[in-house]
Write a protein that binds this DNA or RNA. Sequence first.
RNA 1: GCGGCUGUGGCGGAAUGGUAGACGCGGCGGAUUCAAAAUCCGCUUCUGGUGACAGAGUGGGGGUUCAAGUCCCUUCAGCCGUACCA
Length: 854
Amino acid sequence: MSQYNAPQIEKKWQQKWDEAGCFTARIDPDKPKYYVLEMFPYPSGRIHMGHVRNYTLGDVVARYRRAKGFNVLHPMGWDAFGLPAENAAMERGIHPGKWTVENIAAMRAQLKSMGLSYDWAREFATCTPDYYQHEQKMFLAFLKAGLAYRKESWVNWDPVENTVLANEQVVDGCGWRSGAPVERRRLAQWFLKITDFADDLLAAIDRLDRWPDRVRLMQHNWIGKSDGARVRFTLETAPVGDIDAIEVFTTRPDTLFGASFVAIAANHPLAAAVGATNKDAAAFIADCAKLGTSEAAVETAEKKGFDTGLVVAHPLDPSLKLPVHIANFVLMEYGTGAIFGCPAHDQRDLDFANAYGLPVRPVVLPDGEDASGFTVTDTAYTGPGTLFNSRDWDGLDSDAGKQAAIAAISAAGAGTGETTYRLRDWGVSRQRYWGCPIPVIHCPACGPVPVPESDLPVTLPDDVDFSASGNPLANHASWKHTTCPTCGGAAEREQDTFDTFFESSWYFLRFADPSSDNGFSADAAAYWLPVDQYIGGVEHAVLHLLYSRFFTRALSKVGYLDLDEPFAGLMTQGMVCHQTFQDDKGGWLFPSDVTKDGDKWTVTATGKPAKAGRIEKMSKSKRNVVDPEIIIETYGADTARLFMLSDSPPERDMEWTESGVEGASRFLKRVWRMAQDVDVATASRDTAACAGSAHDLVRIAHKAIVNLSADIENFRFNRAVAQLHMLANAIGEVKPHDTGAAAAKRFAIETLTRLLSPLSPHIAEEIWALLGHDTMLADMEWPVADPDLARDDEIEIGIQVNGKLRDTITLPLDCAEEDARNKALASPAVGRYLDGNAPKKVIVVKNRIINVVV
RNA sequence: GCGGCUGUGGCGGAAUGGUAGACGCGGCGGAUUCAAAAUCCGCUUCUGGUGACAGAGUGGGGGUUCAAGUCCCUUCAGCCGUACCA
C-alpha cells in the first residue's frame, strides 16, 4: 500500500492542470458564465492564513461551478501600489518597484502551491503602466464629464518628513515616523463626484439581495441620507461683516415653532467674524478647536456654548427673537454648520438649553398624551406625534407637519426642502511616489491642463531618491518640469498620485479582458460582468465596495460599459484567529515556540512556563501567527484547505488549531487508505443488485451528493465537510458479505472522491486516477444523484406525549396517517401515559413526528 | 448614545416551528503492538439509577403553540460598526 505523499501528488496535479489549461477562461456565448472573484492581495511579501481562507473559499466555489457546467472566470492579480513599498524603500534602500516585483514572485509561488484554479494568463499587477495607463484615460474622461474636479482641502502635514500623512499615520496628533506634531494644511486636490450618485448608490442597495445585510446596512449608513429643509434665520442685530443671516439644516422642520435658539459651529464663518472683534468668543473658539483634536474626549464632552449676543428672527414670525450661540456640538462638516435648537424634541438641544437657561417649548405631542399635561424636563421626546403650539399646523401629524413647514418656509422665501448626505466626494490625490501619476500639467498661464491622450501614459520615473525628505516626484527635476500642452510654456507635472483605491475600483473589469488596449472591451465586460460571487474581508465593506460601485457607474456614464452594480453576490469571510502566548516577562511568543504539557504550556527552548492568552485575530504584533507555507509543506495544501472549511461557517471568525489540522489530515489519510483497498480489477460500480448494508451505502452516497451540493451552493462548507465524513463512515460500516458490497463500496468511494474534489482537489485527482480513470476530475462534470436511490425506505420518527419525547418507532416513508397514529398509540411508552383513556388529540406530521395529547 | 450581530456539551459547531447536540476536536475505555506512534472498535450534555428509565437542559424572565434553540415581548452579556449627523 502506497503512502499518502501530499507534496509529490500536489506538485504533479498542479502541473497537469497547468499543461492541460483546465482553468483558462474563454468567452462562450452558449454556456452560462460564472465569474468568481476573491479580493486581490497587496503583495506584502508572503501569504498569510487570511489569504488561505479567502482563496480556498473562492476556489471551492469556482471548481464546483465549473463542474456544474458553468463557463467559469476565476482570475488573480496584485493590488501593487501602496505605502509599504515606499517604507521598504526608505528603510532598506530598495526600489519600491523591485520590492513589489520580488514580493509578487514569492507570493505567486505560494498561491500556486495551494492548487487554486486560477486562469493565470489573466494575471496583472496594478503598478505597471500597462495597467495604470488606462486609469489615467478614465480620469481624463471623468474630468471631461464633470465627474472629477479640483478643490482645496485639509490634509495632515508632517513638517519633519515634509509629507502628507494618511489619517492612520497620525498617532496622538503626531506623525507616526517623525513624532512631530502634525499640522493641518490646505492643499488643492482632485476629487471624484461620488455624491452625484449618492441617491442611486443608496437606492440600489435594496437590489443587492445576495449581499450580507450587515454590509448593506453599513453602506446605507455611510451614505447617510437625511431628508429635511434648509431654513434661513435673518439677523435682527447688525450684520457681522457681510453676514446678515444664518442658514440652518434640519430634518425636523415640523418642530420649527419649538425653536428657542440658533447655534453655529466654532469654525463657522460667522463665529470667526464674531471672534475677530470679541476676545471671549475667540477664546471659546480656540477652546473648541483644542477639544476637537483629542479623540476620546469628544465622547463625554459637555455641551458648551458661547452667547454671541446676536439675535435672529424666527423665519415664520419675525416677532419671535432667538439668541445665537457658538456651540461645541455643532459640526461645520455636516449640513450647513448651523442648527436651530428645539430642546423639547432633541436631546442635545435640551442638554444645551438646560445648561444655559433657554426655554423649552414642546410642539409635538406623543400619541395618548394630553396637551395640557405634557412637559419636557430632562428627556427630549424625539418620536413622531401630533403638532400643537404650532399655529396653523396644530393637529397635523409629524409627516404632514414637515410638508406644511417646508411649504410655509418656501412661501416665506426663507428656505426650501433639502436632502443632505453624509457621503463626501472622494478625494483621490495622494502626495506619494508609489501610485499612479495623475495626468495633469500645471501651467502658470493656463492653470491645470489635462495631459493630451496622445502623451499618455505618464509613467513613474524609476530613478528616484528616497533619502531626501518629501515626495520623490517633487524632487525629480527632469520629470517634474515639462511644457504646457496648451501654450507650450514652462510648466510642472502634477506630483500627486492616485489613492490606491483607484486601482481596486476597476480591476474586476480588467480581468474580463486583460490584454485590451482600452482597459477592457465593452463586449468582454458585457459577457463576464457582473461578478457572480465576490469574496473577501468585511474590512472592505464600505470604502472599496462603495468606490467600486461608484466607479462602475461613472465608467458607464462616460461610455466604457453598460452596468451599474459590479458585484451581484458578495460573501464576507471572518478572520483567522489563534491563541496567544506570552513568556514570564510578558513578551509575545510564536505558537511554534511553545509546547503543551498536560494542560500547561512551556517555552520549548527554555522549559520555562508560558502563559496562554486570549484567542485573537492572527497578527504579527502578537505573534499568534502560523505560516501557511510551513503548513502546506508539512501537511499539504489539501489538508490546509480542508481544515479551513471544516469547522466554522465562512462568515464567522475561525480558530486555527494544531488539532484541527491534524483532524483534517487524518481524514484525508483515511480516504486515501480506503481507496487503496478497492480492487479496481474486479469491483464493478454497478449498484443495481446491492442489498442490506451495501444498499444502505448506495443510498447514503446518493444523499451525500444531494446534501453536499446544496451545502456548497449555500456556502455551508462546514456542513459539506460533515457530509464527506458521514459518507466515509458509512463506507467503513458496509458488511463485506452483503450482496453487492464491493460494487457499492467502489461506487461510494468514487462518489466521495468526486465530492471531495472542489475542497481538496489534488488528492481527489490522484485517487480518481488510482481507481482506473484516465480523465481528470478538473474536467469532469459534477455527479448527479438518483432521487429514487437517495430516498429512505423507512424512517425512525419520534412519538411525543404532550410535547415530550417518550418513544421512537420506525415507519415506512410517507406512511398513511391512520397507520402512523395506530402504531404510535400501540406503543407501551405511550400507553403508560394514556392510562387506559382515549387521547384528546393526536397530531401526525408526516415523516416527522407524532404528538399525542392526553 | 445609536445601529447591527452573536449567546446551544469540555471546545468548534449541527438542527424547513416537529426526536436538541449532526460532523469534527478533546476525553475515557478496549483491541492491535515487545513498546510507542499510527490504526480500528465502543462510550462521551448534565443529575439520579447497575439497568430499563426518570428529571433537567439551547444566557435570564415572560408569552404564543399540540409542539419553541427557532416566532413575539422583556432583560443580561460579548463582539462589530458608527458617532455630538441637526
